[in-house]
């Protein structure tokens, strides 16, 4: 009985470590996707001159899954709602963040970007997209650093901490 318990504990902590490592690995990837999405949005707004709703629909078609849902839902609910663009943006952002591996820093950048979306002329809009992109670039570097530094360690740390607890209990 004791051994079964110990084995379960070991499995759980190892899985926890792997999960944490996965998040660390996912984050730079998702930041890159986000940057890509903003670049598509920029092109749609500046060269396609399409309104926000249409531009977001097009972005949703060009980016991979979890992020695509965000843009798709955002444009769909903006079409129906009568509240301001920022309220809808924030609401959708909160929902998306709970399923993504992205951190608080990126969320703040996206929130600030949401406040400027559609509120300026072309030149102003471009500046704000560029600003958000450069902020995201900074976050990306930080995320990559963290990934390199911690991802392997976290995996082994999960296994080893499980082992430690078992040894303490025996």
């Amino acid at each position: 009985m004791k051994w079964i318990g110990a084995l379960l504990l070991l499995c759980a902590t190892t899985w926890g470590g792997f999960e944490f490592a996965r998040r660390l690995n996912e984050r730079p990837k998702q930041i890159r996707q986000l940057k890509n999405a903003l670049q598509v949005l920029e092109a749609e707004i500046l060269y396609g001159q399409s309104p926000v709703i249409e531009a977001c629909e097009k972005v949703a078609k060009q980016v991979p899954a979890p992020l695509a849902w965000f843009f798709e839902e955002f444009s769909a609910s903006l079409k129906q709602s009568s509240s301001s663009l920022y309220d809808v943006w924030e609401d959708r952002l909160d929902r998306y963040w709970s399923i993504s591996a992205l951190g608080e820093g990126e969320k703040e950048i996206m929130k600030q970007f949401g406040q400027t979306l559609g509120q300026h002329d072309f030149a102003g809009q471009q500046k704000h997209i560029r600003l958000a992109l450069s902020h995201l670039e900074r976050e990306l570097q930080e995320a990559q650093e963290q990934q390199q530094r911690y991802s392997k360690m976290v995996k082994s740390l999960g296994f080893l901490s499980g082992l430690l607890i078992i040894l303490l209990f025996i």
């Binding site: 707004i45 001159q49 309104p51 926000v52 709703i53 249409e54 903006l78 009568s82 301001s84 663009l85 979306l117 559609g118 509120q119 300026h120 002329d121 072309f122 102003g124 809009q125």
Partner: peptide, 16 residues
């Protein structure tokens, strides 16, 4: 703000 957003489909840049 609401009226302007409705007029321009939330996209002021289109109303240049």
């Amino acid at each position: 703000q609401y009226v302007i957003n409705q007029l321009g489909d939330y996209s002021i840049y289109r109303l240049e």
